[in-house]
Simulated scan of single mutants.
Amino acid sequence: MKTLQVNIVTPDGPVLETEADMVIATTETGELGILPDHIAMVAPLKIGGLRVQKGDSTDVVAVHGGFIEVRPEVVTVLASAAETADTIDVARAKIAENRAKAKLQAEKDEKELRLAELELQRAINRIRVGEGKF
């Protein structure tokens, strides 16, 4: 059976380099399932978990935006930040979630509200991936 080469890269360097049977990503237009020999494309990613399936196992990576580039045998994710489930500090993510919720309740400035919303989305994403509830 054919596989895909999967590369997840951030400005800090590579996060994951592996082979997979299937990749499932959350793009701006919805979920996208990618199998070997998929048509070439590029799509913007939403904050969410990127699932990398190989056999009976699935690895989930918390991706905080960016782009996915798909070629027939290679999937490359260029993200501003990404973390594998085993590297996420869930307790720290919960603190960030509470801090973002407090900002949302206290803030009046439109720009600051949007930043707090994004902060909350990232924290929730990290918690879900870190706890395996994706």
Rank of each mutant, 00 (worst) to 15 (best):
M1T: 06
M1K: 05
T3R: 07
T3Y: 04
L4P: 04
Q5C: 04
Q5A: 07
V6N: 04
V6L: 03
V9E: 06
V9N: 08
P11T: 05
D12C: 02
G13K: 07
G13P: 00
G13H: 01
P14A: 15
V15K: 02
L16Y: 00
L16T: 03
T18D: 02
A20S: 10
A20D: 11
D21M: 14
V23L: 03
I24C: 03
A25Q: 11
T26A: 06
E28H: 09
E28K: 13
E28P: 13
E28N: 06
G30M: 11
G30W: 03
G33S: 10
I34W: 07
L35C: 05
D37N: 15
D37K: 13
I39T: 15
A40C: 11
M41N: 14
V42E: 12
V42A: 08
P44M: 09
K46E: 13
G48N: 03
G48I: 03
G48H: 04
G49W: 00
L50W: 01
L50H: 01
R51Y: 07
R51E: 10
Q53A: 05
G55I: 02
D59S: 11
D59K: 08
V60M: 05
V61N: 00
H64F: 07
G65K: 02
F67E: 11
I68D: 05
I68S: 05
E69W: 03
E69I: 08
V70A: 06
R71M: 11
P72C: 13
E73Y: 14
V75E: 00
V77F: 01
L78T: 03
A79Y: 02
A79K: 02
A79M: 06
S80Y: 14
S80R: 07
A81I: 08
A81V: 12
A82D: 01
E83M: 13
T84E: 03
A85I: 02
I88V: 10
D89R: 00
V90A: 05
A91F: 05
R92A: 13
R92N: 08
A93F: 03
K94Q: 12
K94I: 07
I95H: 13
A96C: 03
A96K: 01
N98C: 14
N98G: 14
A100V: 09
K101L: 12
K101N: 08
K101T: 10
A102G: 07
K103M: 07
L104T: 09
L104H: 06
L104Q: 10
Q105L: 10
A106F: 06
E110T: 12
E110A: 15
E112V: 08
L113F: 07
R114A: 15
L115W: 05
L115V: 09
E117L: 08
L118I: 14
E119Y: 06
Q121G: 02
Q121T: 01
Q121Y: 09
Q121A: 13
R122V: 15
R122Y: 12
R122I: 11
A123T: 06
A123W: 06
R126C: 05
R126M: 03
E131H: 00
G132M: 04
K133V: 10
